[in-house]
């Protein structure tokens, strides 16, 4: 190879590189998209798990929504109050206090309290098991089957299967809502972290039917509703509900419940 060949090669490749460099920097300037610097700061403040618990496609999408005013500063359920305060500081507004919520499984039908109608030998996944007759092998059609679909989707290791039902550790729960979406029985709900008493049953059948399938299911007797001094308990579909905003945490309902379906947490 002659020396001119080398020089030509250097010149051409160097020229291409130089041209591309100049072209890209010019294009970068011409095609610059104005981004709000606040968006980057908010992304920094968010947890960055991209769990999607806020309902947006990841943390950066939420940051854009917060910066443009479409989402509240407390839009991140995972970060809770500290993150909301940081974001409020960035935007220079007051944070509206958001109460810390946790997920809770409304079933206490453990292995001793319920039984199986038949032996289920299929895929160990609640979503699959709920397609078989009677919505799964468990005696109670509404109860937690304990195959652990919620455990699989939880990114914070907050759910364990204990004695045949899912139990959520409320210290670890970030209220991202993934388990709520995954549970085919819609057993999981968000309750305030401070909540003291919950009705741990979702069986909407009449009392006698419930008694047949579970020793601790709510039979809709309304004794708790009559006992409650704050009138926080209503009975619908023969199932008691506690309005956590009205509940004072006195615990009279739990003492009165003949089936022990109301639990102190």
């Amino acid at each position: 190879m002659s020396i001119t060949g080398i020089i030509i090669a250097v010149c051409v490749v160097g020229g291409v590189g130089l041209f591309i460099g100049i072209f890209l920097s010019v294009a970068g300037n011409r095609l610059k998209v104005e981004t709000d610097p606040k968006v980057d700061e908010i992304i920094e403040a968010l947890p960055g798990n991209n769990c999607g618990g806020c309902g947006y496609a990841g943390c950066s999408a939420l940051a854009e929504a917060i910066a443009s005013g479409n989402a509240p500063v407390s839009g991140c359920p995972v970060g809770g109050e500290p993150v909301a305060n940081n974001i409020a500081k960035i935007l220079g507004v007051e944070a509206d206090a958001s109460e810390k919520m946790v997920a809770h499984v409304r079933c206490k039908g453990t292995c001793d309290m319920t039984f199986n109608n038949y032996n289920y030998d299929g895929i160990k996944d609640c979503r699959m098991a709920s397609f078989v007759p009677a919505q799964g092998p468990k005696s109670c059609d509404f109860g937690c089957m304990g195959f652990g679909t919620c455990v699989d989707v939880c990114e914070f290791d907050a759910i364990n299967i204990i004695d045949g039902i899912a139990v959520i550790d409320k210290e670890k729960c970030k209220a991202c809502g993934k388990c709520i979406a995954a549970c085919p029985k819609q057993l999981i709900e968000l309750i305030p972290y401070k909540a003291r008493y919950v009705v741990e049953c979702m069986n909407k059948d009449k009392g006698p039917l419930v008694m047949k399938v579970c020793k601790t299911g709510c039979i809709g007797c309304s004794l708790c509703a009559k006992e409650c001094p704050k009138e926080a308990i209503t009975v619908e579909d023969s199932l008691a509900h506690i309005d956590q905003e009205k509940c004072a945490g006195c615990g009279l309902c739990a003492k009165k419940c003949p089936k022990n379906a109301i639990t102190a947490i």
Partner: peptide, 28 residues
């Protein structure tokens, strides 16, 4: 220029720049 033996290097350069440019262009 009779430098076809440099195709790999030049192609890498051009493709990387092209993708960068396309991304900017689409964003705008």
């Amino acid at each position: 220029f009779n430098i076809t033996y440099l195709q790999t290097i030049v192609f890498i350069l051009v493709i990387a720049a092209l993708v960068q440019f396309v991304e900017m262009f689409l964003k705008k």
